[in-house]
Amino acid sequence: MSFKTLPRVISSGVKFLLNGREKSFVVNRVEARELARSRFAEALREAFPGVSDNEVARRAAPVLGRSERQIQNWLSGMSSPVIEDVYTVCAILGVWKTMEILTADQTRNDILGQIGQR
């Protein structure tokens, strides 16, 4: 799959998840960003276990090809990773562990409520 086809693939995935119904979302971007950053930090800590965030960053940096400082920023919620880094961490964790972290035993409606949808 090329990056040119990525928007089409994502769009069809969203339509599939909505049972074939297109739906327009108005999202609270701040809450959605904070939720995504927090869940990604959890995934990083699971994929690269360490006793501290510094150790997590030290372990993750060579694998992800990022600086320890950048990874520490992700762990603290100060910045967001690019999608390639998200995919890499998710691949390390595997699909079931990734979904466990991303959903945190919440339903679709619970998550939509957190980001301003009801």
Rank of each mutant, 00 (worst) to 15 (best):
G13E: 13
A91C: 04
R8H: 10
V9L: 13
L35R: 15
S80Y: 02
A41E: 09
I71E: 01
S24I: 13
G113C: 08
A41V: 02
N19K: 11
F16P: 00
Q117S: 01
R8P: 00
N28F: 02
L44W: 09
G116M: 08
N54R: 15
T98C: 10
E100N: 11
V30W: 07
V82F: 05
T103Q: 11
V51A: 09
A104R: 15
R37M: 14
S11D: 11
A41K: 09
R37E: 13
E22K: 09
M78K: 14
G50F: 05
L44M: 15
D85N: 14
K15I: 11
I101P: 00
L18H: 10
A61W: 09
V27F: 09
P62N: 01
Q114M: 15
R45Q: 05
W96C: 01
A32P: 09
T5S: 13
A57I: 14
A43V: 10
V89E: 09
R37H: 06
I115N: 05
P81R: 08
Q70L: 11
G50V: 07
L44V: 07
I92L: 14
L6R: 15
A60T: 06
A60L: 10
E42S: 14
D110R: 02
D85Q: 11
L75N: 12
E100G: 03
A104P: 03
S2H: 10
P62A: 07
G20K: 02
F3P: 00
G50C: 03
L18I: 01
D53S: 12
G77C: 10
A104Y: 02
V27S: 07
N109K: 14
N19L: 03
T88E: 15
D53W: 02
G94T: 05
R59H: 07
D110K: 01
G13Y: 06
V27I: 15
V89S: 08
E100F: 04
N19G: 00
E68D: 06
T107R: 05
L75H: 07
V56E: 03
K97R: 15
Q72A: 07
